[in-house]
Design a protein around this nucleic acid. Sequence first.
DNA 1: CATGAATGAGGATTCATTCAT
DNA 2: TATGAATGAATCCTCATTCAT
Lengths: 213, 213, 213, 213
Amino acid sequence: MVSILTGEPNPARKTRKEILSEWRHKEILEAARRIFASLGYAAANVEEIAKEAGMAKGTFYLYFKSKEEVLVAVLASDLEYLTNKTIEGMSAAKTFEERLTVFLNLRLAFLRHNEDFLRIYFAEFGTRCSRPAHRSDVIDKQFWRAIDFMRQCLEQAIAQGELRAVPVESAAFAIFDLSKGFLERHLRGWAHLPLEEDLAFTHSLIMNGLREK
Amino acid sequence: MVSILTGEPNPARKTRKEILSEWRHKEILEAARRIFASLGYAAANVEEIAKEAGMAKGTFYLYFKSKEEVLVAVLASDLEYLTNKTIEGMSAAKTFEERLTVFLNLRLAFLRHNEDFLRIYFAEFGTRCSRPAHRSDVIDKQFWRAIDFMRQCLEQAIAQGELRAVPVESAAFAIFDLSKGFLERHLRGWAHLPLEEDLAFTHSLIMNGLREK
Amino acid sequence: MVSILTGEPNPARKTRKEILSEWRHKEILEAARRIFASLGYAAANVEEIAKEAGMAKGTFYLYFKSKEEVLVAVLASDLEYLTNKTIEGMSAAKTFEERLTVFLNLRLAFLRHNEDFLRIYFAEFGTRCSRPAHRSDVIDKQFWRAIDFMRQCLEQAIAQGELRAVPVESAAFAIFDLSKGFLERHLRGWAHLPLEEDLAFTHSLIMNGLREK
Amino acid sequence: MVSILTGEPNPARKTRKEILSEWRHKEILEAARRIFASLGYAAANVEEIAKEAGMAKGTFYLYFKSKEEVLVAVLASDLEYLTNKTIEGMSAAKTFEERLTVFLNLRLAFLRHNEDFLRIYFAEFGTRCSRPAHRSDVIDKQFWRAIDFMRQCLEQAIAQGELRAVPVESAAFAIFDLSKGFLERHLRGWAHLPLEEDLAFTHSLIMNGLREK
DNA sequence: CATGAATGAGGATTCATTCAT
DNA sequence: TATGAATGAATCCTCATTCAT
């Protein structure tokens, strides 16, 4: 399988083994996501995850070094996906108000399709906990990438007079805090307000809060 | 120790045993708070807590049924204290804006004097997690008491025209989310803005966000 | 239990707990000796040792930090006993020839009563193996104590003209090597010569070998 | 590759396959020797050995049935080599004293060129351990071949009046014990005496010990 | 023959909880 | 009530060996 042009193996064409390997990797990731979501990290055990992924315990360790590593991998992959979608979607919008709409809607969609992720995230990393137990540069990186992007959007919106002058870092954190709270109260069934109305309120709170009077 | 008037034990007058018992109880609570704060719940072990409280492991179990129970007790007691302070302080204020100031300042003060609590709270209950592992009616009760009180304040402020008509439950949640986020980013050293400026921004975000334009 | 004379707890008088604790310690040591002797260190497992000692696995870990530690303890205690006996017995003798007789007879007696020890010793430490796995200062110390004592005996015998001038360190090693070999070939059933005759030969080999012609 | 004369495969002429196979076999043996020598048997793992031999784990099992088997093979092959050299060298000598010189010098040379073997031998078979784990008829056979040859040499020397009448089996064992001890103390760096002087002492101890006074 | 992915038995250790003293 | 020795369930991970490709 050698490229005619470069004389090197075609990196785009995967061998059967690579495909199988990636598939196994994904199987574990998904099994782990389900198990962590339903039991939490501490109560989950590797044997269970392997069984859920349809393989033996030992096989798990061919793909992940430890139970910890797979937790991080689950969260990092979901978080990266969400951050990519967010940056992509917001970039396509023109005004900050539109961007905020995109941001919140993406989170709403995520809530609908990735409950598992959110359960794990809130349970284990809801606070990007600083205990050595669960620190992860990979997850931190995605977190800061998202915060930084939001900060840039805010700076631009302030420069263009769409928003009043606010400390952008704090504002970015606040938007994430509000959207996280929004997701959490609906995930847990605490909120009585319909999803859309609550989303609209959250949107209005942020826009009113950040706009010039 | 029996009351002369009623012929029943005087509930106000405590026996030496009761006093000792309460003192032991408190010793454990405080020891556990320190240990949980520095190691996290999972890594803490009962022997360590007992030693920190100056007693043997067995004695711990005379006062608490389990490691779990003492975690809940630590958080519930701190949370009750904070909620009491909050309700008391906010009740004394007149306008919603003043009440919000009280609310945020109390949290700022709490951050300064109760770092231990916050570390545990963020690490173990940051999201009032729903896993069976850590559910607690006692904590929930304090949580809802605080939310409910905030809701009432909001309702009143709306009725008096101080705030625009917003869904009060969501608004109450939002205020807690923002203040929690505020505490977290300063506890973890994520924020570059000075505490007071960040607090002022958070205040303005909420007030602007909830006021009529 | 306070001494009238010193006002301090009498160290000679042991509490019931201390006695029990020492008894447990010894039970484990003896159980471990039996298990190690019959299965070897690698094949032995802690659960088995605990069961043999009549206790639960967890209890084992109250007395020894690890499987490794108990192996070392078993060997060190037997080796210390043998070295003590050896130094004591040889000291009581006058000539080197008598001392050698004592030395070899003690080893013969040890062979008869401590087969278990020898099996473990030959299997795990037969060569005072240098792999990090089984290094132990406690065992080394006893080994060198015995070698040093033998060296002194040799020096004295040479000074008194009983033996020819030989390098004492090498001679001491040689005597230990010969007696170890003697024990090993009888323990394993390799030797056809009766024990006493073989012992006499070993004795004569050493004395002839070290004496002036 | 069939012999023209006999119509059968020529046993002397090896097929390419056989050559390759033997080469692989030897590669594994040498890799295993290095790995066992540096890590010990228990800590070594098959994957490592295969990698060191430049092949995959599965291939290892085409040539050896188990990890155990390759350990035995390593030691048996080295031991056979040494025994061959020993018998050959001693046979060429005339007197027992000369033969002993050959014997000890061969062991000294072996120490210098086969440290790896000795490390494994002392660590795993230093005592030709009797645990089922490491029994091996192949090794035993070489061991007894060497002992038997030494016995014959002793018998002959006694018959010719060069040595006094000693129990030859015990004497043979003793010579092996002394030479093993000599190697061990120098391999481990326990001896302070220069190699040659120590060898000379060992030689004199044996000759004096076995000769008529 | 060669490979290396898959297997799963096996074992040391921890620690919340109990209970005899 | 106070103790802390005893318990044993629970679980992560390793690695020799097998087998489909």
